[in-house]
Design a protein around this nucleic acid. Structure first.
Lengths: 224, 224
DNA sequence: CGGCCCGTTGAAGCTAATCAATGGCCGTGG
DNA sequence: CCACGGCCATTGATTAGCTTCAACGGGCCG
């Protein structure tokens, strides 16, 4: 269950440099009531009406789809500053859950699309937001279709580092199972690949949720 | 090299029912000069400026990305009525090539985005077009991340049939290599899977470019 | 008729999945 | 404070599925 703040606390959570840049460039800064979600709590579910658009204030979110036999594919992870839940249709195609304790802002989708009716810049922003998602999803396709387990994990680490603004170390807010379901692998393969990357000296793993990219260039080379 | 018609021939190529529906619902009917491309001819290449948006008049197009070692991932096939090349950025992220003898219409991207400046409906259409691409690409991710070779091929046939307006037979305009590079498999696996689907009585393959979906329901069940 | 391209089939190999067990961390309760 | 239990990550052994390497065949075009 969600914890709606009685008085929407306007505590401004500082965005890191990258996110602020993106926001200024062509992103969106939503203003709406904040809601806190516990770890693994559902924000919206597949098939529900897609009435709201969200922006992560703090924490992280996964969006995924399930096959009937339980196989799960995580479409995307969303971090502070990222928008999610901007669907084309009226119905959710994915489920969204908090990875950790997470605060999000929510605004009615209709308020955005109505604003876009007479504000060309808003219309452009909505479009660009979707276009950026499309680009990222296309990268995901290339990853899943044509890359080995090692390349996928290397690419994942590089992407995570880049998005967090760091270059040589990553905090990993999701479980090995989440990573596996994002990369189209099993938890065992992800774990073994981390071990192997460590053995080759490409990364150091002081704890399983914190990884140092000791040889970032080699990791980059693995994903081109 | 491309063959620009001296006098843009306005021979209207009839769209099939599905495409016309989509066009009317939220699609785009571009008006621009027609160009014919030969089989395997490049329409645009990765890294080039993305100045034009295209719509297939007749024939079919593949868009793909290459890794440095030659691995290829086909992002999408485009058939009559489909738009492609509507990039977010100013540079092509994919290469587009004609699968067969193909005629496309082209319009300047700037003419669309300028029109969107004071035409909210045009802005909405551009957005919806991108959103539809995103949905399809997300389906592709699920396919590549979590489905077996058999499920991928079955899903591919169902999708191809649906898009061509047929239900129980498919003309396959692309090579086995194209299918493999779309599904993240090898040509041999695709071929074997077809043979196996035929052996199980799910499909009949009178010729390698024409397949009958003898047991469409079972094929559907394989992709949920 | 001959050669080439594409698709199919066969055999062997390899990558990642599956099955199974162990270890470490953390929270809870004695 | 320490013991226990549960969850998550790691590691090992084996298997399965897909790829790779190789050969063959059929259709099409010169």
């Amino acid at each position: 269950m969600s914890v709606q703040f009685a008085t929407p606390s306007r505590t401004q959570v500082p965005l890191n440099g990258l996110d602020r840049d993106q926001s200024a460039r062509d992103g969106l800064e939503l203003e709406g009531p904040r809601t806190a979600y516990a770890r693994d709590e559902e924000i919206f579910g597949e098939g529900e009406p897609a009435d709201f658009v969200y922006q992560v204030v703090s924490g992280a979110v996964r969006t995924y789809r399930l096959l009937s036999d339980g196989r799960r594919q995580i479409e995307e992870f969303h971090f502070a500053g990222d928008c999610f839940g901007l669907e084309a249709g009226i119905e959710r195609r994915t489920t969204a859950e908090a990875l950790t304790e997470t605060v999000v802002k929510a605004v009615r989708r209709s308020s955005l699309t109505e604003k876009a009716q007479d504000d060309a810049d808003m219309a452009r922003r909505l479009w660009k937001l979707t276009a950026r998602d499309l680009n990222r999803t296309q990268d995901h396709v290339l990853m899943l279709g044509r890359r080995s387990a090692t390349e996928r994990v290397a690419g994942f680490l590089i992407d995570l580092a880049r998005r967090s603004g760091a270059t040589h170390e990553v905090d990993i807010p999701m479980s090995r199972q989440d990573i596996a379901d994002y990369l189209g692998l099993t938890i065992e393969t992800v774990s073994r690949t981390f071990t192997q990357l460590q053995g080759s000296g490409y990364v150091a793993i002081p704890s399983c949720r914190h990884i140092q990219l000791s040889d970032r260039q080699s990791l980059l080379d693995m994903c081109e």
